[in-house]
Structures are given as C-alpha cells and as structure tokens.
Amino acid sequence: MTLRLDALGQRYGDHLVLHGIDLTVPDGQLLCVVGPSGCGKSTLLRTVAGLQPASEGTVTVDGTPVTGVPDQLAVVFQDYGRSLFPWLTVRDNVALPLRRRGLARAERRAEAERILERVGLDGAGCRHPWQLSGGMQQRVAIARALVCRPSLLLMDEPFGSLDAQTREDLEDLLLEVHRTDGATIVFVTHDIDESVYVGDRVVVLSPGPGSRVVLDLPVQLPGKRDQIGTRGLPEFVELRAEVGRAVRGAQGYPTG
C-alpha cells in the first residue's frame, strides 16, 4: 500500500504542530520517523490513521484520500497497558478485530491462536493481559494488529517503554513480520539506533512548532540484520551518526 502525504499540516487553534510535510512511502517500505519528543510524531500517525482530520494538505492511501480510518490499516500504540482491553482474555483481545469480517467464533479463535503462536505467545491465550509482562503485552498488541493482515501498519513508539533486551527481541520480531508479510510500515520512535536498525528509510522531523522533514535517508545495510553484527557495521555507525546529527541539529544543539 502506497502512502502519500502532500503539504500536510496540523494545528490546534493557533498552535502549529506540523507544517508542509511531503512524504511518499512506497508499497512494502518500513519507514522510521524520528524526532525530539513533542515534535508531532504521534500527531502525524493519528492523522494518517484517520483519527484526526488534517488541517492542511492531504493524506492518500493508494490514491484514495484518507477521511476516516482506512481499510487494511492497523495501529500499535506505545501504551500497551491502556491499548489492550483488560476485561478480555489475550485471545479475545486478538480476535476482536476479526468480528467485522463475519467469521464464526471457532474460526476467530483459531486465527487468534495462530497469530499468537507467531508472535511467540502460544499458550497465553486464556490469560488476561495484566497477567503478562510488558514485553508480552506488547506482543499481544502486535498480534491484534496483525490478525487482519494489514497492508499498512502504523507503530507509535511501540517499544519505547520496554527494557533493552525485550526491545531488541521485538525489533527482530518486527523485521521478521515485515519480511514475510511485506506490509507498508510507518514506525515512529525517538531512538536513533532503533530507527537505523529496523528502517528501510529514516525521516527526521524538526522540533515543533511547525515540524517539517529535515532529513530523508535511505538505509542500506549489507546482509540480514542482527542485533550484534549489524550494529557493529561501519555503515550502521555512519548512518546512525548522520541521523543523530540531524536530530541534534534540529534540536539546535552544536553539532561539533
């Protein structure tokens, strides 16, 4: 699914959050959006998700302007504790989006179990989200997003509140999902390392008000990515430095 932002702007009353964002995400690309906190990354995602109409410019998905939540779209939010429904079991949480597809109950459950197994949560279906660790809860949220086989997946700092080890595991899970499903993914993060590690392309936003794109960088890294090897590659270090410079520069710090 191709996502296109044309001169996108977003304002709350007099406060300009985003301004003049032009961005085309080709089908199957994993785009990372990096920027200092408060620069409007989440606002950008909410606009693409159709949760909030754009104040300026347009968002189109495969040529169709976004007016409500687009079909084939899924979102993973940062705060898994709030985004999952605590009164439903893990399996029912994951099966919830399947209701609108008119599947029978048994089919919905089987599909949910299948996707849970894929994110490494086989056997956790009958438990409740709050009985699981943070990393496992975010896996549940990812499973819920994947269960309808989205062709556009938006992720709003999904691993931002997890510990380092869990975060690395989930980054690899995301890469695996992206390799096999080939969905277009927009991944918002404030972690520069993470953006270079998971992204096919990294876009840096300037701090608000009126954030715009200050760096648009393709990420080409040799070989299959892995946590130790890839992060040690000279290309990786180079790219990370470039993104870092853009973020710092955008924040107005001396770049040395």
């Binding site: 909410r46 949760l51 979102v75 709030r82 985004s83 919830l96 989006p97």
Partner: peptide, 19 residues
C-alpha cells in the same frame, strides 16, 4: 486511547458498547 483503539479496530456501535 481505548476509544482510538476501538476506532482503529473499526468496531461497530454495538461492539463498542459491549467490549
């Protein structure tokens, strides 16, 4: 946030009420 989640999952009015 949960209202956003319900919108993104495209729950119908009755499902929204029930779940």
């Amino acid at each position: 946030l949960r209202i956003d989640v319900a919108a993104v999952l495209r729950l119908g009015p009755l499902e929204r009420l029930r779940f």
